Structures are given as C-alpha cells and as structure tokens.
Simulated scan of single mutants.
Amino acid sequence: MNIIKFLREKIGYSQEELAKQIQVSRQTLINYESGRTKCSAESAKHLARIFDVSVDAILNNQLPTEPSYEVLPAKPVPAVASLRISIPQENITKFKEVFLYIINKIGSKYNVGQTVLYKILYFIDFDYYEKYEEQLIGARYIKNTYGPTPVDFAKIVRKMQNDGDCVEVKSKYFEREQTKYLPRREADISHLSGKELEHINLTIKKYEDWSAKELSAYSHKDVPWLAAEDGGIIDYEAVFYRTPETSVRESTNA
C-alpha cells in the first residue's frame, strides 16, 4: 500500500488536484505513489498538512498510530433508545456561513489557526446543544490527539476555497507553521437565528485569545471528548454529563 495514494483517494483528490496543492507536477506525484521516486521532504510536509498526519507517516509510508479525521472512517455510535441523537445530521450551508462568520471576525488574529477554529466550532456546537437541547450546526466531530476535529472540515473548506468564499494562508506562529483561513466574502447570517448568532458571538469572545495548545488542553477536560473512543464520533448527548469546569448549562435562561 502506498500511503499517499491511499490518503489521496480517501479524501477524494485527483492526482492533478493533489499535485497542484503540493506544487509538483502530476508525473512527480505519480512517481511518489508508484514508489519510483522517494517523496521529498518539502512535498511530505505539504502532504502531512493536507492529510492531517505526521511527516514521518508520509516519509515512512505508514498509517499514523493516531487516526486522523481524513484517514479512518468515523466509528458509528450505537443506536440507544434513550438518546435523542446518535450521529447529528450535517447542515452544510450553516457550517459554511458560521465558519465565514468566525473568520470574518477573528481569522486574521495571530493565534487563530486551523486548530483554534476546530475547537471554536466544537464549542459552538456542543455548548449550544447543552444550553438549548437543539443543534446549531450539527456537525460531526471525532476524538483526535489534539482534541475534537470536525469530520468534514477539509472537504467543506476546500469546496469553499474553490468557490471563492475563503482563502488558505500559511504563516508562522512561534516558529511553527500555521494554517489560517481568511474570508473573501461576508457571511450570510440570514441562515442564523438571533439566539444562534448571540451564542456564536459569546463563544468567539470567550475563546478568541486562546492559543491552540490552551484550547486543546481545555477540550481534553470535556466529558464528550473523554467519553469517546479514539478516532470515534463524539456524542452530543454526553454534554449532559459535563463537569462544572466545562458546563455552560447554568447560563441558560429559565
């Protein structure tokens, strides 16, 4: 098995698309996938970012020991009669507009890269569900090493980039490469209720200055993340078992 080919097909890239993303010719990518040419360090770095795996996994042609949201399929949550939701229904349009709303507000802040955005989206969704027992975006998240990861983030945002809604930018944050997203249009907030918009604004305000490390550590204390299996879907119902440290239930109006 060639890991580059396996992961490329897993996320639905053509050879031409992936070659363009990592700035090599299609023939060079074909050579990587066939094993005729060893993947360069620079290409491995780009591929690791796209596939959300380590550079070593690419260079050593090995699947990562910790599953990535793009590497392994999400594990289904067993149907239980007492659960209102097992796997939340995706709302792609709302996801796009909420994502655009967030990056319009804080996308240019020095600390706000991909990992911070993952966590803000997670807390928007799970805190809203705890407060109101309703879904806001209703995206699915899995348990990864650095905290909750939205399952379809890469595919949705890639489509948004192709449609001209946003642009991906590489930057340095404390000498480490950071993936940022900047908007190319305003969010259409007609898809959001006043209650939803207020909640999103409060969540952004709460976390906008946190580093990726701080947010990841905080998410690791959240019961939904703790209760999930590694690489498995994080169950929305687990918010009702949160500890006081992460619970937002008390802020709900009576």
Rank of each mutant, 00 (worst) to 15 (best):
L121K: 01
S82A: 12
D125R: 01
K96W: 06
F95V: 11
Y118N: 13
I106W: 02
F99P: 04
A81T: 13
Q89N: 14
F123M: 07
P78K: 03
I85S: 04
L121Y: 04
F99D: 06
K119Y: 04
P78G: 05
I85M: 08
G107S: 09
K96S: 12
A79R: 14
N91C: 09
K105C: 00
S86P: 08
E97Y: 00
K109I: 10
L117E: 04
N104G: 10
I87S: 15
K75I: 15
I120S: 01
K75H: 05
L83S: 14
V112E: 05
G107Y: 04
Q89P: 12
N104R: 07
V112D: 06
V112R: 00
S86N: 14
L100W: 01
V80Y: 09
K105Q: 10
K119P: 04
L83Y: 15
A79D: 13
D125I: 09
Y122S: 02
I120G: 00
K109G: 06
K75M: 14
I92C: 08
F99Q: 03
N91Y: 10
V112N: 04
F99K: 03
N104L: 05
I103M: 00
I92K: 15
Q114Y: 12
P78F: 08
Y122L: 04
P88E: 09
I85P: 02
V116C: 12
T115W: 10
V77C: 08
Y118W: 12
Y118T: 10
K96A: 11
S86M: 12
V112M: 08
K94P: 11
L117W: 06
V80W: 07
Q89F: 13
S108D: 15
A79G: 11
K96G: 10
K96C: 14
I87C: 12
E97I: 06
Q89M: 14
N104Q: 12
G107D: 04
N111R: 08
N104P: 11
L83D: 15
R84Y: 09
P78W: 05
V98A: 05
K96Y: 06
Q114F: 12
N111Q: 11
V77L: 14
E97G: 00
K109D: 08
Y122Q: 02
P88N: 09
Y122V: 01
S108Y: 13
K109R: 13
V116N: 05
S108V: 09
P88K: 06
I124P: 04
F99E: 07
E97A: 00
G113V: 06
I124K: 03
K94E: 10
I120L: 07
G107R: 01
S108W: 12
I106R: 00
Q89V: 15
